[in-house]
């Protein structure tokens, strides 16, 4: 019975010692001490032959029990130690997530490009395709063919940069593109968007610059009405500024359209209540537009008795200013990186 007692004592001592084990090395030492070749339980196995025959099964079973218990305890302890070690390392590796991230070099598209694309997309879905025309134009295309003969008072509406080559100027609007598109496609119907850089000889201010991008819209067809013109432009304005915004058309004058109008959109900031941006009126002027003048249709190669159409001119710069609360249009072509990075 001494053997049985000492096995129990060995088990108790080993389990107690295991309690104190706190790292891999101590665990290995414990394993050698309590499950190694000279551990008490192992010695009990080797002494089994010397025990009285009738006691052998009892002692053998007890030794097995103790060995199994110690092995299980060892495995459990090893697992616990592993988990604790993982926990410690996870804790040790904790980062300050509020430190700044490491940024890749970033590129960007100019806000004007982004705005233009959005306009192309909206008009594209209505069937308008992009058609481009040159910056340096003839007086004929920029004025005369658009129903603005030389010395006509309407020429006062555009302060023009002329080149030293007589009859050649910097286009003051994208409307000469109307003439180019019409002459190219007549008598086919047309639906085009004419983007381009335009130039005006005037004092630069926060609202205008000597160079600016304009997008012209032109539709010519057999059954195009004032209603189509109103509907298309309202659809555009609501898609680019917001579905719920009201629009209105005010009669205006351009020599190449009749009737001519200015389109106003409800102020994007105050929604019609009156603020500094809309100067209290609740409305913002966003484009000049109208039905194509019969003389212009004729100059473009269309029979005004059969064809009708509409045209509009919109500044993507103005659109971007309103949508992003940009205060000064002149920022667009100065290209300060602190401005560019915001888009």
């Amino acid at each position: 019975m001494d053997e049985l007692q000492s096995l129990e004592q060995a088990q108790a001592a080993a389990l107690a010692a295991l309690e104190a084990v706190n790292d891999e090395a101590a665990l290995e030492a414990w394993r050698i001490a309590h499950l190694g070749r000279s551990a008490p339980v192992m010695l009990a196995f080797s002494r089994l032959g010397q025990a009285p025959k009738e006691l052998r099964p009892q002692i053998g079973q007890a030794a097995n029990r103790v060995k199994q218990a110690l092995e299980e305890a060892f495995a459990a302890r090893a697992q616990a130690l592993k988990e604790a070690a993982l926990q410690r390392s996870l804790t040790a590796e904790r980062l300050d997530v509020t430190l700044p991230g490491r940024r890749p070099a970033q590129g960007s598209l100019h806000i004007e490009t982004q705005t233009l694309r959005e306009m192309y997309r909206i008009f594209g879905e209505m069937g308008f395709q992009v058609f481009r025309a040159p910056d340096v134009e003839t007086d004929e295309n920029n004025f005369t063919a658009l129903n603005i003969p030389p010395y006509h008072p309407a020429r006062d509406m555009w302060d023009t940069f002329y080149t030293t080559n007589p009859g050649v100027l910097l286009r003051t609007h994208t409307s000469p593109g109307q003439i180019r598109a019409m002459r190219q496609f007549a008598p086919q119907p047309i639906r085009v968007v004419l983007p381009g850089m335009c130039y005006r000889y005037e004092q630069a201010s926060s609202r205008k610059d000597i160079q600016f991008t304009q997008v012209e819209l032109l539709a010519v067809g057999y059954h195009i009405t004032f209603g189509d013109f109103k509907g298309t432009l309202r659809d555009f304005a609501q898609r680019i500024f917001g579905e719920s915004l009201r629009t209105r058309l005010r009669p205006s004058y351009f020599p190449f359209t009749e009737p001519s109008a200015e389109m106003d959109v409800e102020c994007v900031i105050c929604r019609g209540k009156g603020c500094a941006l809309c100067k209290g009126s609740g409305w913002l002027e966003i484009m000049g537009c109208g039905m194509v003048h019969p003389t212009v249709l004729q100059n473009g190669g269309y029979d005004p008795a059969k064809f009708s159409g509409f045209a509009a001119g919109i500044g993507p710069g103005r659109v971007a200013m309103l949508r992003h609360a940009i205060e000064d249009l002149r920022a667009f072509y100065i290209n300060d990186v602190r401005f560019l990075e915001q888009f």
């Binding site: 058309l249 009669p251 009749e258 009737p259």
Partner: peptide
């Protein structure tokens, strides 16, 4: 066209209907 503009002006541009383009799409540019 001049007279139609005068009529549109007196009726009021905002009182004229809104429609969407119904003409067939022209060939691609």
């Amino acid at each position: 066209a001049d007279l139609i503009e005068e009529i549109a002006r007196l009726v009021g541009f905002d009182n004229l209907p809104y429609t969407r383009l119904a003409d067939p799409l022209p060939p691609p540019v």
